[in-house]
Nucleic acid binder design. Structure first.
Lengths: 347, 347
DNA sequence: TTTGTCCATGTAACCGGTTACGTTGTGAAC
DNA sequence: GTTCACAACGTAACCGGTTACATGGACAAA
């Protein structure tokens, strides 16, 4: 591995001049700079990032800590982040907290000293704990997490309003016995969605104790709710699942029991996973622009790293869009327009 | 930020002793070690990774360079890699070559000096070019890329054999006029799958010039092929699409034209994307364990980094599994068993 | 007591960049 | 011709760890 001294010797200059030439400082004559660059090319020199980060006191790297995400979410968030990071010459160091709170602390600790800033998405971690894990000196932006009392910048999806809107839409279509399939108990998204549902039911339909079935975001938990519903104990004319996965499991069970969707019961989900528009009937849902979640957060982090103050934008909230499809009677046929972007080559 | 000298001062020892204590060297007495550790905790000390990598000449980081992948593939590969990397205390630095060959070179160059090894998946890059980009000193394992003449270790999916097997299955079910929808021209996976199809048609059905329609792995290109086929110019009783996405687009077009699947025409795909089993009828396809692709490659890289020689395992080939479903008459109804693992919390 | 061994610990020289500061040389101003 | 300003470049001191080598003390063997 060639070092800067090698380059300097090759070009017949001092290390200082070589360094200045390489970093594009102004006080280097054109011929000297050319000589240095030639040496760089000849020796195939690449500056040692560790040595650089020692003196510059920055690493040009941001840490990204995500939980175990379902396929689409993971790749879309990364894509959004990478898009912005790439433009600014930043690198992405990946960390995964595999669900557990303990792992989160470990992942964050492992990043220290390796990154200039952090993007963290801690869906299941309590705010009090989180602030203990985070390094106050390290600029951090939270993904999909309303910091609340912590005054950390974040970008989040308005789950509450999304759920409220979806419930409102179901009621507008004539549903009265709307059942909600909830997500994991300690998941913030799930809780916010449930709150939105409950509030909408109370305010719009004046129903104060709507039926809520337990779930965990998995397809199977949706199917379980479905099996329970087809027994007919619980009056129901619409189901709002806290995410699309559960809606999928639910619909399959309803179909098996001979229930018609949306005829007997309307169904709605949340997230707009790719599968949603391919179901038959297609699934009504709330669409979230996941990549924007990532890119927005990354842009915020970059601004912090540049020393800017975020002000009001330090809390950015993305509003999901209602997509009315077949399962709420919106459209009878599977969409095939290929509206979802095709993301290039695959395996 | 506390440095090692701060820790040493706090603990009343020299930097050398502090360093040894922290790194668990044997020649440090228990009380001294305890004192150092106390200081570490008190000052909240984290070793500067850059400084460390300078002397140790390693970064404990591996670079992962992937193309723009479709959601599932991306996250599953990363998951597989991360699983193994995490166990060995390795970090993952992400790089993306956004399709272009030029970006690939840039991504690889950007990694130099920051990583101990590289995992690269270059589906569209020619071998000759690739070897020029790669640093011969930097241990590299290729993902899903048969290095061929280059003697680089790799782990790949046996696209050829997979396609052969699928074609064979279609023929076994009585198909004769099998049409292939190809993937992108310069994509190796696509080319191998096409070869497998052509060879199977020649050897088994003695058909030497089977019909091949162009495609680019996108749903829309599958739909286009579908529109062409329903015009009836081309005799067809089965279609083998080079990936599931195209099969999805195709099926939608066939359905719109009133063609019955598998009655009028059987359909098969490749990849087993999550959507495949949810279609109605469900899509027959070749299943690839994407996460194993990642974990296997990472394990190979770790072995190289440990100085082991790979020998015969330096070329690992994963064979895909045939999944017969509804579109080839295998099963009439959508599967709902939730066999696909649920990957934890989502947005 | 002396000598030698061994172990815990300290000193200082690295690793490979960056940059403050010093040196040199040129041209302009006097 | 002298002085000064300024630009180009070199020297060396950092950054924060690691580790070869040196030191010193304890203990055993002589």
């Amino acid at each position: 591995m060639a070092t800067l001294r090698d380059v300097a010797r090759e070009a017949g200059v001092s290390v200082a001049t070589a360094s200045r030439a390489i970093n594009g400082h102004s006080n280097v004559t054109a011929p000297t700079k050319a000589a240095v660059m030639a040496a760089v090319k000849k020796l195939n020199f690449v500056p040692h990032s560790g040595a650089r980060s020692l003196t510059r006191r920055k690493t040009d790297t941001v840490g990204v800590i995500l939980p175990d995400l379902f396929g689409e979410f993971f790749s879309e968030i990364i894509r959004g982040i990478d898009l912005v990071a790439h433009e600014s010459g930043m690198h992405l160091l990946l960390g995964n907290m595999h669900g557990s709170t303990h792992e989160t602390a470990a992942a964050i600790a492992a990043m220290r000293g390796r990154v200039d800033g952090l993007l963290v998405m801690p869906p299941d971690v309590k705010p009090e704990l989180l602030s203990g894990y985070l390094d106050p000196v390290l600029p951090t932006v939270l993904l999909n997490y309303d910091a609340g009392t912590l005054d950390l910048p974040f970008v989040a999806v308005d789950n509450y309003r999304g759920a409220y809107a979806m419930t409102e839409a179901l009621l507008a279509r004539g549903a009265r016995q709307v059942v909600h399939i909830a997500g994991p108990k300690h998941n913030r998204d799930a809780r916010d969605r449930q709150r939105g549902f409950v509030d909408a039911m109370a305010k719009i339909a004046k129903i104060s104790n709507p039926a809520i079935l337990p779930g965990d975001f998995s397809e199977e938990s949706g199917a379980q709710a479905g099996r329970l519903l087809v027994q007919g104990q619980l009056p129901v004319d619409a189901v709002f699942a806290a995410n699309d996965q559960m809606a999928v499991g639910l619909i399959a069970q309803l179909a098996e029991a001979g229930k018609s969707v949306p005829g007997d019961v309307m169904v709605a989900g949340f997230d707009d996973i790719p599968l949603a528009r391919h179901l038959n009937p297609s699934l009504s849902t709330m669409q979230v622009n996941i990549d924007r979640l990532g890119s927005t957060a990354m842009m915020m982090l970059l601004r912090i790293l540049r020393g800017e103050t975020l002000g009001a934008t330090s809390a950015t909230i993305l509003t999901p869009t209602l997509i009315a499809r077949g399962t709420t009677g919106g459209a009878a046929i599977v969409e095939v327009t290929g509206k979802a972007p095709v993301l290039g080559a695959q395996l």
